[in-house]
Nucleic acid binder design. Structure first.
Lengths: 182, 182
DNA sequence: TCCGTTTGTATCGAGTCGATACTATCAGCC
DNA sequence: GGCTGATAGTATCGACTCGATACAAACGGA
């Protein structure tokens, strides 16, 4: 029953995600690039996030680039990394994200019910990720390597990359995220 | 947050649904045909179920027919209706449905939590269906036109089609389903 | 009988998707 | 310095999705 509801909801969301000339995957890619941190805006990271291959992602990026919604820029340091950024148009388009309808619907639930749904879905997701050996992406602030209020360089610190983090970084999605509890 | 979890879960499920040489939509179609009643096994009903067009569904059915998983049979009564049935192979394949993994994961949740998740998701789905003017498919037994324990013809009765229903019908998905409460 | 509706299909163009193959860059190591 | 292997990204192929459009056939009511 629970599985069927998730299936129905997915299908409905997917049908709604043919808006503004984009298709569902293109919206997902755009959403990711709008929410990921500056260490995770690459084709490889996006491929892992979407549970697909680099080849497939490369084509989706071609489509988004043709539509002038994203830009590819070579990394100044590493010669084989290509950084992805939203263009001004791409950023503006996020206001029309079909997923916003679901988000606003979820806010109409009673707080207790919403919390229960969130907890249950998080448990399901964690279970499936573990069962399939997948790395669970997450927000920087909740990561094992996150150090709040570092003294040097910035307000926070990433112990994995040895790099300062600002407030905006702390709330963004990171490829290298690892949940705090083992 | 809730919306993001649903998005993550959808994506994961979708990635898992490239199994046994089928793609996600083909699995959805197969699932529908395995679960719908004998008044709803048509291309048009499937199109409405999947929130897509008849043209798209027709192609998916072509693919499934090529793979010998479904069969198209002309309706004996109406000359323009084509009934869809699973072949023996198609039915056997349902045992490998990738969605079963989610179903079994859901069963591992504590009963109270599972009930809360189910209720919350049902509310979300109902809200979105209403907001987008979509007809909510459902199981025969829960329909406004369902009459339990009819005296004539069969154990139950459909007041819309004026037709007897057996136990198997009562548990199947129907295109003409209408929720009991107005 | 005519006309509008319903059921299903064919075709087109853009794009997804996995698989495979490829290039370029980097990092460690001798 | 040079080798080797891992990593980041792209190109191409074939099967397929998907909406849009157009179409044929069957039905059904006026």
């Amino acid at each position: 029953m629970t599985a069927e509801l998730i299936e129905r909801l997915s299908r409905l969301l997917r049908a709604q995600s043919h808006a503004a000339g984009l298709n569902p995957v293109q919206w997902e890619a755009l959403r990711y690039l709008a929410r990921c941190n500056r260490f995770s805006n690459t084709a490889g990271a996006l491929a892992r996030y979407l549970h697909t291959t680099k080849g497939t992602v490369s084509q989706t990026l071609n489509a988004l680039e043709r539509k002038r919604l994203i830009a590819r820029k070579a990394d100044p340091v590493s010669g084989r990394i290509i950084r992805l950024t939203l263009t001004r148009v791409g950023r503006a388009l996020m206001a029309r994200d079909p997923m916003l309808q679901l988000a606003s619907a979820a806010e109409k639930l009673a707080p207790a019910q919403r919390a229960a749904v969130t907890d249950g879905l998080a448990a399901l997701l964690a279970y499936l990720q573990r069962a399939n050996g997948l790395r669970p992406f997450g927000v920087c602030r909740t990561c094992r390597h996150f150090r709040a209020d570092a003294s040097a360089g910035g307000p926070h610190w990433c112990a994995l990359l040895d790099h300062p983090l600002n407030e905006s970084d702390a709330g963004a999605i990171c490829v290298d995220h690892q949940p705090r509890a083992a």
